[in-house]
Design a binder for these strands. Sequence first.
DNA 1: GGGTATTTGTCCGTATGTATG
DNA 2: TCATACATACGGACAAATACC
Lengths: 469, 469
Amino acid sequence: MDITPFLDKKSKIPLYEQLYSFFKQEISHARIAKGTKLPSKRRLSSLLDVSTATIERAYEQLTAEGYVKSKPKIGWFAAEVEPDFPSAPDHFQQSAQPGSHKKNAPAIDFYQGNVDPAHFPFTAWRKSIVKSLDRYSDSFHTSGDPQGEYELRHTIARFVRLSRGVNCDPGQIIIGAGTTVLLQILCLMLKPGTKIGFEEPGFHRSRKIFEANRMNVIPICTDAEGVLPDELYRRNPYFMYTTPSHQFPLGTIMTITRRQELLAWAAKSNSFIIEDDYDGEFRYSGHPIPSLQGLDPNGRVIYLGTFSKSLLPSLRLSFMIVPPELMKSIKNNAELMKQTVSAHSQFALADFIETGEWQKHINRMRGLYRKKHAVLLEAIRSELGNIVEILGKNSGLHILLRLLFPASEDEAIKTAANNGVTIYPVSPSYKERTPFVSVLIGYGGLSEEDIRLGIQKLKTAWAPLISPY
Amino acid sequence: MDITPFLDKKSKIPLYEQLYSFFKQEISHARIAKGTKLPSKRRLSSLLDVSTATIERAYEQLTAEGYVKSKPKIGWFAAEVEPDFPSAPDHFQQSAQPGSHKKNAPAIDFYQGNVDPAHFPFTAWRKSIVKSLDRYSDSFHTSGDPQGEYELRHTIARFVRLSRGVNCDPGQIIIGAGTTVLLQILCLMLKPGTKIGFEEPGFHRSRKIFEANRMNVIPICTDAEGVLPDELYRRNPYFMYTTPSHQFPLGTIMTITRRQELLAWAAKSNSFIIEDDYDGEFRYSGHPIPSLQGLDPNGRVIYLGTFSKSLLPSLRLSFMIVPPELMKSIKNNAELMKQTVSAHSQFALADFIETGEWQKHINRMRGLYRKKHAVLLEAIRSELGNIVEILGKNSGLHILLRLLFPASEDEAIKTAANNGVTIYPVSPSYKERTPFVSVLIGYGGLSEEDIRLGIQKLKTAWAPLISPY
DNA sequence: GGGTATTTGTCCGTATGTATG
DNA sequence: TCATACATACGGACAAATACC
């Protein structure tokens, strides 16, 4: 047992905590047997050249958590701890040694759900959280408003009107821990077998939610302008799920005429449209088109928004704007489920938006993503120019690569993986047959350099797949 | 000498100055004899929950003015001082007394879901949150592990084993934003019409979740020992939902024999038991009985735990421990729903538990609730002694009052409301007929004084309902 | 076997750095 | 910039347990 190399006096992590983590690891992994006498304060202190009080503090903390026991005037002893599970990732060891890069560099991950890790306004966000903790501490002892805290709903209502042209009052907003939770609340009001129109292709996670709730999911084809209204008249679903601002996965932006046709259909057939605006904040070219919800005078649109892309995926905070006609039954179900987002997160987000930090962040990110987007397109053009076609390049945080060479989706993904690049299949987005071979490329979470590198690697990976003639 | 009430953290007067004034008063009024050793920096610091440096600053100022003398490495001692004017007004006592009661006092709310608002270890919790923000910022840019962050699951596994006798490894744990979300995930794996045994009476919110998911909810009667196993053999549901550690709403604690019978039934019939341990941390008398999960060698128990009662309702954090046989399908559904709790909350809670703060808090709360509980019982005995019967008085944060006078539940609640007391109906807990008239009294969120006052008001409210003969 | 020096945990005051408003 | 408060780390005084002579 040698601690010396684990103590880093220059680290930001306090000395006593480094010691604490070390012993915690050793004991819980049974590398120090229970009952073993630990080195005395003074011995360790002179060995490691730190104060005895530092050692003492580490031991004290370990005592508080039951890892060691102290016998006064005798010594400290490792306590009995459940053996740790061997597969447990040694998180502490890794985080304590930030310098050591793995030999096998992690794959470059083009996952569409990731966002830029480097430019998040951490200080401001932290400030909002701390502020909300201090200011709203009175509200934390109840489970809170099942729809979500009024402050946040009010803020969202105001903001969404300005930025997305969505009209609503706070009473129509339901806060939830992710779009899936909100869709789940929606499903609770529907009988199994209810007809749900769903873009084909479309966002598979949402489709699976409907399917798991035993809805009758009807694929509705899309073209370059968006959902085809004829199909809707023919199949006449009760709900129609769509992603008009940036169709998933194709990336098309629904035209204004198509939007109006959709709304007309909904009004005529007493159906509802679910508008999932999952990354509507990021548009790079062309005029912004108002949301379906904002265009709709008849209250036929359920609007879904999220802060996963525009703030932090790990925050798990989305919202749903419900038309008055559905409000009562959805509210009932929301109350049944209770609120799913912690009050402090809600207050923090409200503050973050109110202080203008969110807007600043989005603006900054839009610029960054625009640049990444350009880098990606350029890299693809130069590296893969004649073997792929790019689809959906005007907004959002992902594009589609249609393969112009005879390889299966599976082959394309596997060879990429073997070359250290993770890309994603498009076929799950289709309920029925997939018309052409393509892969999903999300670039939000990668640096410009990694984007270039990743595309280069793709070229290498795919080279053998291209027929030689 | 008790300083606690004199320290007002929200005051504009600096903390060190409040301390300084206090000791100056005490010493110059000779309430502290000369030569007395003053409490050490650390002792005071932990007692008052301020930094040691703050105490030091106060002592220093006192030293400078000759009120105390410092002996290095030994302590601080009160010095000899001219006695001050004896009639000096105790300025602090006034400013610290927040006692100005409002004229229109809000209703006294006996809601069972509320918890004590005054004794939450706010500083420690805040510290855990800030620490998790600082230390895990790398993890926030992805949506995280759908089951929940490994650190938290590991911590919960360890803790639940020690405190509730539950056996599991972190891989079996699913974190979710509330018990309802977890039950919802459970329901996604069940066909509509699946038979769910449900305690009669039972926790209505859970029942409604099953019903909303179109399960076939079968009421299973309970007696003083818990669920009746005969009923189970007769009706043979696939899942049986129960609250063995503190039956909701009756408050009975399931006996060990009954527990074993239940487990035997589940093993024999290949069914599963859902053990909802919603407030198992709080038990006031009798021996602790191990959880069903801990007694079960056959993996037939799904254990539900929550931090709503034992920490903060607004945190929205619960967990589910899944037996291996169900793991695969439940995991699938959890992945479909994605994780519903923000990563920073998860890391913060893991830290809060790991640093021993949670245990401290529970211990403290158990004592407080025990006292409130005693106050409540005493108040009921003295005020309502002969018109009600108390049910379920050995654990948890609520009791049941059975009305011994001829009034309806509705009447009892309405007259109470008219007298400024909110109490809750028991009838929603019953799926079928309610056998006797009773009301639900939760006391976790009320002060001892309000508990007494509330019961007094109940007496006044109900007086007219009692037949005069 | 009894006294003494040493080891050890516990408690203490002090100094310096850092975050916040 | 400055006041307030907290966090981290240091080194010494003390008394009990232990080891040694």
